[in-house]
Simulated scan of single mutants.
Amino acid sequence: MKMAGIETLSWEPLFVMRLDVAYDRAHPVGGENRRGIFPVVGGTFEGPKMRGRVLDGGADWVSWRGDGTMLIDVRTALETDDGALISMQYTGLSTPTSPEAAARFARREPSPYEDLYLHTTPRFETAHAKYEWLNRVIAVSNGMRTDDGPMYHVFAIT
């Protein structure tokens, strides 16, 4: 339904990001939400306006709801190929779309986008003049698990 005066949302691709997660160094904190801390130890990103690497030192502070939904809370840093440092923080959720998808996810097997409802809302912060525009971007992503770990397609809402 179209309403008078209401515009549609548009988007443009920012980059594709692949993360290296040290699952073997995870910290199972536990508690009511079964929290776990998963170190992000690297990765890459590449898009039309920027490319580079994900720095070691980030982490995903995951928790799980009773219905099996994983709540994602990541803080990490990006370094562009021209030396800019960019802080990236995103929250979101991931939930399997079927019992079979849930079993593959539990075994850390690669899965297509259709296996998971995996979406996040990245935010960025930088002082680098070339990428300062990122400080004013609202972004969304969709993700999946590959052989090498998580992969996200990140889009700017325009």
Rank of each mutant, 00 (worst) to 15 (best):
K2V: 15
A4R: 12
A4Y: 11
A4I: 11
G5V: 03
I6Q: 14
I6G: 04
E7V: 12
T8N: 15
L9T: 13
S10M: 09
W11Q: 14
E12C: 08
P13S: 09
P13G: 02
F15V: 07
V16C: 03
R18Q: 15
R18M: 11
L19F: 11
D20A: 13
V21P: 02
A22T: 01
A22V: 01
D24F: 01
D24C: 01
D24N: 12
P28A: 11
V29M: 08
G30A: 04
G30C: 05
E32F: 11
E32H: 12
N33V: 07
R35H: 08
G36A: 15
G36P: 00
I37P: 00
F38K: 03
P39Q: 04
P39W: 07
P39T: 02
V40Y: 01
T44P: 02
T44A: 08
T44E: 05
F45A: 02
E46Q: 11
M50K: 00
G52E: 01
L55P: 08
G58C: 02
G58M: 02
D60L: 00
D60M: 01
W61A: 03
V62E: 13
S63Q: 10
W64E: 14
R65S: 09
G66H: 08
G68A: 03
T69Q: 10
M70F: 04
L71K: 08
I72M: 07
D73Q: 09
D73A: 12
R75T: 13
R75M: 11
T76Y: 00
L78K: 06
L78W: 13
T80R: 03
T80I: 10
D81V: 04
D82K: 05
L85P: 06
I86H: 06
I86A: 05
Q89W: 10
Q89P: 03
Y90P: 09
G92F: 08
L93W: 10
L93M: 14
T95S: 12
T95N: 09
S98E: 08
E100S: 10
R104S: 10
F105V: 07
F105Y: 13
A106M: 05
A106Q: 10
A106F: 01
A106K: 07
E109Y: 00
E109R: 02
P110M: 01
D115S: 15
Y117M: 10
L118W: 15
T120P: 06
P122V: 00
T126H: 05
H128V: 01
H128I: 01
W133D: 05
L134M: 13
N135E: 07
R136W: 11
R136D: 12
V140Y: 13
G143F: 03
M144I: 11
T146S: 13
T146V: 04
D147E: 15
D148H: 13
G149Q: 04
G149W: 00
P150Q: 07
M151I: 10
Y152I: 07
Y152F: 15
V154E: 04
V154L: 05
V154F: 04
F155S: 10
T158P: 11
